[in-house]
Amino acid sequence: MSTMYAALLRGINVSGHRRVPMAELRTLLGGLGHEDVATHLQSGNAVFRSASDDENALRNELEQAIEAHFGFPVDCLVRSGAYLAAVADACPFPPAELDGKQLHVTYFDQAVDAARFAGLDAAAFRPEEFRLGDRSLYLYAPDGLGRSKLAVALGRPAVTRGLVTTSRNWNTVARLVEMTRD
């Protein structure tokens, strides 16, 4: 039995830095023995099929292969298609009523306790809002991520210390769910 996964790479292909061409990433994933490899956009979204059921082992394997091939480390998260679908289904905001660029999901490498966000005065950022999910955070930013003051506050080291995080807008979340559907 094999499973469809998404690999979410963090901080690549931004302003010409840490370049990871998607064709090379597809070849790299195929070389690791994965099948049905595809990429979405240039921002580090790859899907693949694997016989492994260990997301952390897949993540470690991919991070090591990327560093060996490209010469720099890249944090990655690997999540099953079923997990991505569950995150999308659990969204506390109404995706169908919003522009995909107003809604974002930040994926974490581990479960995050609400106490981590206790020092954040969420009301001060209205109409922006966030909600915690399972190894994820949903962010509603009506003016987009680039103008979001709440996104800046959520990304501060006091909040993210010790975590690997990467965010995707709802359009990408929905596309990855579609691409990893078995």
Rank of each mutant, 00 (worst) to 15 (best):
R181S: 14
F48N: 06
F108D: 09
E67L: 12
E35P: 00
R161M: 13
M179F: 06
H69N: 08
Y5W: 11
L176G: 09
H40N: 08
E97M: 13
E128K: 00
R181G: 14
D53L: 09
F93P: 00
H40Q: 15
V159K: 00
T3V: 15
N169E: 10
L84Q: 08
T166W: 03
L120I: 14
M4Q: 14
L8N: 05
P94N: 13
D113V: 06
N60I: 12
E24A: 14
T180P: 07
F125V: 00
N56T: 14
G31N: 02
G81Q: 02
K149W: 01
F72T: 07
G155T: 09
R18H: 15
Q110M: 05
A96V: 06
V159M: 03
E61L: 15
R161N: 15
V105R: 04
G155D: 13
S136N: 01
V20E: 04
E55G: 08
G11R: 07
F117V: 02
T39F: 05
A86P: 06
F72C: 01
T180M: 07
T172E: 04
V112A: 10
N169D: 05
N169F: 00
A122K: 12
L150W: 03
L62V: 15
E128M: 06
M1V: 12
T3Q: 14
G81R: 00
D53R: 14
H69F: 09
A85Y: 03
E55I: 06
R147F: 08
Y140R: 08
L29S: 06
R26S: 13
A68F: 00
N56H: 12
C76Y: 05
V20Q: 02
E55T: 13
V177Q: 08
G16D: 02
A158N: 08
L98R: 12
R161Y: 02
L176T: 11
L98D: 01
D134Q: 04
P92I: 12
D113W: 05
V78C: 07
E97V: 07
R135C: 13
D143N: 12
A115E: 12
A122D: 08
V74M: 11
N169L: 11
G31K: 09
V164A: 11
G71S: 06
Y140K: 01
R26K: 15
L58Q: 08
